[in-house]
Amino acid sequence: MKVIEIKDLVKIYNSSEVQVKAVNGINLDFEEGEFAAVVGPSGSGKTTFLNMVGGLDRPTSGEVIVGGTNIWELKSRKLIDFRLRNIGFVFQAYNLIPVLTARENVEFIMHLQGRDKHERNQRVNELLTAVGLGERMESRPSKLSGGQQQRVAVARALASKPKFILADEPTANLDSKSTENLLDMMEKLNKEENITFIFSTHDARVVKKARRVITLDDGKVTSDEKK
């Protein structure tokens, strides 16, 4: 079942004198349960592509259809609500809310969704235990290591029960061990809960784990391999 359909996606940045085509006519589909990596050199358009798929950066042209909805036809408030209910994000720099504990960071997104307290508590416990942080729930981000913070970020991304998770270079700031642990955890969640993961990455370890590898160069898909 298709989770995302991407049609003729283009992003052009207009600087003072030159036009830069960051994404140049990408057509892709993602099926439910995929564990895909988008790779390519710096400036190839990976992050721009992910931002447009995630409803964070408006494309110059083209469509991103998620569950039958062209997300770029939605008004600003509807788009934010769509992201809240359908898309999970994991960022390179973790980007947890520093004044909230690990528990509160994960709970926060469900709070925004209007879930009741009992459901929130139950899911937070499940998720933080699943990412191996059952004992650090009340710690604030500053008290957690980079790897632990990224685990909380993954738990936060999963908390809203999204259709898919977009992870922009999630291992870029992690050491080898933390990278290994995080990838194992995400692979497990992907297999057990059939959650779709799409990464942008430079990291060979991520590429190795991915079951589909899409290569971008100059904003175009140069290869799309399924393992």
Binding site: I80, R83, I109
Partner: peptide
């Protein structure tokens, strides 16, 4: 600014 961007990205409405 980044934190605000992230918070809106993950689904907090701007008015909140």
């Amino acid at each position: 600014i980044r934190e605000l961007g992230v918070t809106i990205a993950i689904g907090m409405q701007r008015f909140k």
